[in-house]
């Protein structure tokens, strides 16, 4: 069991005093956290606590203003979502980022299409894209798919599958899941959690952003609590049970109280 120890020595993703401002408003203020490989780190917080901004920074949509973002110890600065994807961080967006009128395979590769040929004649590698799409969708349990159908024809849950299959294909080092806002059925939730757990067992660093503590506790190894753009607490699975998490979500003050209490008990928590 030396593997996981070495991995946790240099976390796959690390945030060091990361700040993001919109004008004079701090969306994130000096947030430090680690997202180790092979673990699921849950980010919990109310609406407006900075969760979405964190997702935006990790996926390359928004650049951070201060602090550092480290990937396996190397500072990175994503200028575009393409760069983040190229670095191996894939995101399942809250709204799933599916273009309803585009065909399934075009959606799958949108923004990162495989091409062949040199520039003036560089064209989409359509056959390969179709093939990979069908394979990747089959891996998340959607079979018998016509990749040429527009994404709007997908059955309700299959859009989640498309977003997840895409993330699994492109997320070779880290997976960021912004919990879909659309109400999920039990089956869809199972699908999403399955994908998340599968990514963990593949050794990916998983960041699950949610405001559902029960959900988080079901799969999470570590919990990062955000409130008003600041870290309100860092906990591990041993520290809390689901009802603790639920109570912590309810009141912002309780976050810091419990964190300091825990830090007294476990001194190593303070270093995180």
């Amino acid at each position: 069991m030396t593997g996981p120890v070495e991995q946790s020595a240099v976390p796959a993703l690390e945030l060091q005093r990361l700040s993001v401002r919109y004008g004079s408003v701090h969306a994130l203020s000096r947030v430090s956290a680690t997202v180790p490989a092979g673990q699921i780190t849950c980010v919990l917080g109310e609406n407006g606590s900075g969760k979405s901004t964190l997702v935006a920074v990790l996926s390359g949509l928004r650049r951070h203003d201060e602090g550092q973002l480290l990937m396996t110890g190397e500072p990175v600065h994503f200028r575009s979502p393409q760069q983040a994807r190229a670095a191996g961080i894939a995101t399942v967006w809250q709204d799933l980022a599916v273009a309803p009128l585009l065909s399934i395979w075009r959606n799958f590769f949108l923004g990162a299409e495989p091409t062949r040929g040199v520039w003036p004649l560089r064209r989409l590698d359509v056959d390969r894209a179709r093939e990979i799409t069908v394979q990747a969708m089959a891996r998340v349990g959607v079979t018998g798919l016509d990749p040429d159908q527009p994404a709007s024809t997908l059955q309700a849950g299959a859009r989640q599958s498309l977003a997840i299959a895409r993330a699994r294909h492109f997320g070779v080092r880290a997976l960021v899941v912004d919990e879909p806002t659309a109400p999920l059925t039990v089956g869809q939730q199972t699908l999403l959690l399955q994908a998340i757990v599968a990514a963990r067992s593949q050794g990916l660093a998983v960041l699950l952003v949610t405001n559902n503590p029960r959900y988080a506790h079901l799969v999470g190894d570590r919990f990062l609590l955000l409130a008003h753009g600041q870290v309100a607490g860092k906990l591990t699975r041993e520290d809390v049970d689901a009802s603790d998490l639920m109570r912590l979500m309810a009141g912002g003050e309780e976050f810091s109280a419990l964190t300091s209490a825990l830090t007294d008990l476990h001194s190593e928590l303070g270093e995180r």
Binding site: L61, A84, R85, L96, A97, A99, P100, L101, G111
Partner: peptide, 10 residues
């Protein structure tokens, strides 16, 4: 068709 999704995907 989906400007937001397009932006999110780079």
């Amino acid at each position: 068709g989906a400007r937001r999704a397009a932006r999110q995907l780079g």
